[in-house]
Simulated assay, not measured.
Amino acid sequence: MTQDLLTALRAQAPLVHCITNYVAMNVAANVVLAAGGSPAMVHAPEELDSFTPMCGALTVNIGTLSAPWVDSMTRAAQVARANEIPWVLDPVAHFISGFRSSAAQELLALGPSILRGNASEIITLAGQAGSGKGADSGDSVADAEDAARALARDRGLVVAVTGPQDFVTDGTRSAHVAGGSELMPKVTALGCSQTALMGAYAAVGPAFDAALAALAHFKLAGTRAAARAEGPGSFQVHFLDALAAVQPGELHAAVRA
């Protein structure tokens, strides 16, 4: 199924509405383009009622949060939901302040199709004690698996936990995705850009398969880019090239039961 989604992604080049943080905008747009989608970084509230329904998917990342941006994120999610458009929530460091936590909970209540976060973000969003530091996880993916399953069942969504080995679940099914590189956390906004790529896949297929395909695509590209890179700077260039070069039939190689 994952290979069919990459074929569809490149054939359809879906428009992906990305409301993301200032740090991630350029990286996320380039990642979606390299994979085969069409990104749009639109966030003005005056445009959302008309623009969001045009899109194949919406992604919301709360990295550089402010009150006006919360209003835009909330409105876009409402419009997506009303128009049955899949959307992905990335609750970046939602536990660092009451303001951020409230925004994450408000958005979660609007029913995203996919929730993507690191282990600490998922554990704390499930109401458990985590050990994250800012946007960095202090917990392992394995530690977050039960919390991810509980969130998926309780909220009726797909949860993707990203780290050295990713985990994705809809509360019943689950899978791990292996690969990537130690250089990936050394390049800012790659995690945020993965959320945008999940949106591109969600525009062309079911949420569980979309999350799994996006994770596999990222891991494969990371592994291949690292083999050619001399450090974080050159890794970025090779990573975009690798995203574009991954073929549909190769995605399954990164997936583990």
Rank of each mutant, 00 (worst) to 15 (best):
M1Y: 10
T2A: 12
D4L: 14
A8E: 15
A8Y: 02
A11T: 15
A11V: 10
L15V: 05
V16I: 15
V16C: 13
T20L: 09
V23Q: 01
N30P: 12
N30F: 07
V32G: 07
G36H: 05
S38R: 09
M41I: 11
H43C: 10
E46K: 04
L48S: 07
S50H: 11
M54F: 02
A57Y: 00
L65S: 00
A67I: 09
V70P: 01
R75V: 01
A82P: 02
A82F: 02
I85S: 04
F95C: 00
F99N: 01
A103N: 01
Q105C: 04
E106Y: 00
L108C: 08
S113P: 08
L115D: 10
E121V: 04
I122V: 13
K133M: 05
S140A: 15
S140Q: 14
A147I: 04
R149A: 14
L151A: 10
D154M: 11
V158F: 02
V158Q: 06
A160S: 14
A160F: 10
D170R: 07
G171F: 01
G171R: 01
A175S: 12
G179Q: 08
P185C: 05
K186Q: 15
K186Y: 04
K186M: 14
T188C: 11
C192V: 05
L197E: 08
G199L: 05
A200T: 07
A202Y: 05
A202D: 02
A202I: 05
A207Q: 00
F208V: 01
D209I: 04
L215H: 06
A216V: 05
A221G: 12
G222N: 06
A226I: 06
F235P: 02
V237E: 01
F239D: 12
F239H: 09
D241M: 05
D241T: 12
A242G: 11
L243G: 08
L243K: 11
A245K: 15
Q247L: 13
G249M: 08
E250G: 09
V255Y: 07
R256I: 14
R256M: 14
